[in-house]
């Protein structure tokens, strides 16, 4: 492998290893079981690597990584024949399995988030990460006003769900 390619690969691997938490958080929110999590993890890493040449270092590695990883999670489609909306059955063992090793609040939050649709999950995930509204809007391609309105609705929905699963 040429030296330049090896340097790019090592630079990418260093960045990814430093921010692996982002990867695991997104996989945790968008997967129902270990198999789905493995598939999503693999796809996100692959897409990050393939799009790394277009990363211009104008933003932080973590910001770029969040955007690509969320886009991958949002655009990864189910195969025909799989249950249509597995995420509406949060009492199913596979959903509990993914959150078993976390604390009680995280487990309740996970069960509530699993009831949201893909876009709502992305918005609430960015909010949980304390991202400013401008950054959430920029990542999602929505206006700041729309994001603030949507967050009010999603939070209300999340509260209802948490109350149900507490």
């Amino acid at each position: 492998m040429p030296q330049d390619n090896r340097n790019t690969r090592d630079e990418f691997l260093d960045g990814l290893e430093k921010h692996q938490g982002i990867l695991h958080k997104i996989c945790f929110v968008y997967s129902g079981d270990h198999l789905e999590k493995e598939d999503l993890c693999q796809e996100i890493i692959l897409q990050l690597w393939k799009s790394y040449p277009s990363f211009k270092h104008e933003s932080a590695f973590s910001t770029w990584m969040y955007r690509v990883a969320l886009n991958t999670a949002l655009s990864l489609t189910r195969k025909p024949g799989l249950p249509v909306r597995r995420d509406v059955i949060p009492d199913h063992p596979v959903y509990i399995e993914s959150s078993m090793d976390r604390n009680e609040e995280i487990r309740t939050l996970y069960r509530a988030i699993s009831q949201l649709n893909k876009v709502e999950k992305a918005i609430i995930l960015l909010w949980l990460e304390d991202k400013p509204y401008e950054e959430i809007a920029d990542t999602m391609g929505m206006s700041v006003k729309t994001i603030s309105v949507r967050l009010v609705r999603i939070k209300a929905k999340l509260k209802e769900l948490i109350r149900k699963y507490q």
Partner: peptide, 11 residues
């Protein structure tokens, strides 16, 4: 992959 860095709506 070249489009993955766009915002979600554009992608």
């Amino acid at each position: 992959a070249k489009d993955s860095g766009q915002n979600t709506r554009a992608l």
